[in-house]
Amino acid sequence: MFSSLARLGLRRWLPAVLALVCMDLMMGCAARPESGFLATTAYEAPSATEHTILIASTRERDARPGTLYSGFRADWLDYASATMSVPPTHVDGKIEWPQTPPGDPRRDFAVRDAGYIDGDRAFLATVNAELAKRPPGHRKIFLFVHGFNTMFAEALYGFTQVVHDAHTDHVPVLFTWASRGKLTDYLYDNNSATAARDQLAHTIRLLTDSNAEEVNILAHSMGNWVFVEAMRQIKMQGGLKHPEKIGLVLLAAPDIDIDVFKSDLRAYGKLKKPYYIVLSKDDKALALSKFLAGGQTRVGDDGNVQDLAKLGAVVIDLTNVHGDDPTDHNKYAQIAAIAPQLEHVLQSGIEKNHVATSDAADQMTSTLGAVVSVPVNIMGNSFSIVSSR
């Protein structure tokens, strides 16, 4: 059997496949939050922190109590809102899941309130109302697009963790497309992601037409495919009314064919603001994706980061960061707590012979032609930033 696998060129992919299968089995034993995890609690824990998450979704509504959305595709873009509570005992990079929903807000993530918002106008009014709670200069939006194999509750709880750990005061908006949340449904998820591009483009238009001063975007895994396709749609349709409102764009562990992505970057032309690509060369989930795609390299595990930099992207290489999950696919969430320091490094610029500093930054050591590689260490997280000069 193994000789047959070797002839097919699969032997070197078996560790990644087995790791992903083991992870899926562990998640199954842990009872992944398919339903009921949006049940609300009236108890307000002392010292707990609450975050109101606005939601735009291409999932079908789910009538099961405490669920809101399923993994099936809807024919329209739907909206909702959820107020999430993070316990005072929370540890950065973790999600303290309730053993039984709604959980105990003193030690668990919990839902304080959740409900649907009907239509574009009501959603935009809700966005503007949340923005108005912030003073001028802080009226910004943080848009997140999740990845493959993600149930709705996982997307919502995971985004809440990132928002909390990053200490951001931006208005958080979750764009959630119809992932079934099953490892075996990769093709279904890929088609769902493609089907969601027009709705994400519409959401981006709504957010940039709001009273926001800036819209910052984080996409993860297959969510990057939705985002790149949405931006392509926007460009083909004449662009945004307020393109200047698009701020920081972080593409984390992008599950996109490298050649398709490079083609899209060339089609965009020189970006006014660079895309920041967060990748890790030991990402086992993307190794499996590469196998399923016939051996085509994914952006998120591309070893030739200099090519991406030359196309105008800034690459944040997390290969040397120890991952907390078996696949090393969610490292972006682990470093959310250093987001303010990382943003300072990025905003200060990366130039030839420039020292990128932070609370504990290393000296820049090398340049590669027109590409600069900056090793950075922030709060014990060692990684590199690669950019064109």
Rank of each mutant, 00 (worst) to 15 (best):
R180W: 06
A201I: 07
L207Q: 07
L174H: 09
R134V: 00
L200A: 02
K133P: 13
K182G: 14
L174V: 02
L156P: 05
V173R: 09
V171Y: 03
F175N: 06
H138C: 08
N149F: 01
G137N: 07
L183Q: 14
T194N: 09
R197M: 11
W177R: 01
L207M: 07
H170I: 00
G147L: 03
R205T: 04
D165A: 09
L143Q: 04
D185M: 15
S210Q: 10
R139F: 01
A196I: 01
I141E: 03
N211S: 15
Y186N: 14
T168A: 01
R180E: 07
L143M: 02
G158K: 03
D198R: 06
Y188I: 12
R197S: 11
T150R: 05
L207R: 06
R134Y: 11
F142D: 09
T208D: 07
K140H: 09
S192G: 14
H146T: 08
L174N: 05
V145P: 03
T203R: 01
F144T: 04
D165H: 10
K182N: 15
H170D: 04
L187M: 12
H202F: 10
P135N: 04
H167L: 08
Q161A: 15
N149I: 00
R180H: 14
A155E: 05
V171S: 02
